[in-house]
């Protein structure tokens, strides 16, 4: 009478319902793990992070952050993408006021060579809206 719930789901139905539960949970776990590996191992882990190189107003190239590359930017400098990090080498800008020389790797970060008007930026659905 009291706690009929536990009595109803007593022995006779136990095997069926609980077995179904276990199957359900196992399926859900499997699905979530499969999805996990599908998204995490695709690209650089985050969604669609790209390295965008602009000279002035012109986008001269967009490259995946996850693929190693070495890009010559009109003879002014070279953008190197390696192991998910981006750096700039061989700047010929006359006074080296390139703002940053350290490698960048997160969406929102930029390397700037202002005299040449070159901006190397990592775009994508990263969480950062600005990096200072």
């Amino acid at each position: 009478m009291t706690g009929r719930l536990s009595e109803l789901t007593g022995l006779q139905i136990m095997k069926n319902k609980y077995l179904n539960d276990i199957v359900l949970i196992a399926v859900l776990l499997a699905v979530s793990l499969v999805l996990w590996f599908a998204t995490v191992t695709g690209g650089n882990g985050k969604t669609g992070e790209k390295v965008r190189i602009t000279v002035g107003d012109e986008i001269i190239g967009e490259y995946s952050l996850g693929t190693d590359a070495s890009v010559d930017v009109r003879g002014m400098l070279t953008v190197v993408i390696e192991n998910g990090q981006v750096c700039v080498t061989g700047e010929t800008c006359r006074n080296h006021i390139c703002a940053k020389h350290r490698p960048i790797s997160k969406a929102g970060q930029t390397i700037v060579c202002l005299p040449n008007g070159v901006i190397v930026r990592i775009t994508g659905n990263g969480e950062l809206d600005a990096v200072i």
Binding site: T2, G3, R4, L5, S6, T9, D21, I25, L28, L29, V31, S32, L33, L35, W36, A38, T39, V40, K46, T47, N125
Partner: peptide, 30 residues
Amino acid sequence: YYFPALMLAGTLTGTVNGLILRFASGPLGK
């Protein structure tokens, strides 16, 4: 992108909640 992690978390909390209800329902019913 965040769905697999949430799904995992949901499955786990759901299981825990269900178990709590299952074992508490007897005494609670009384």
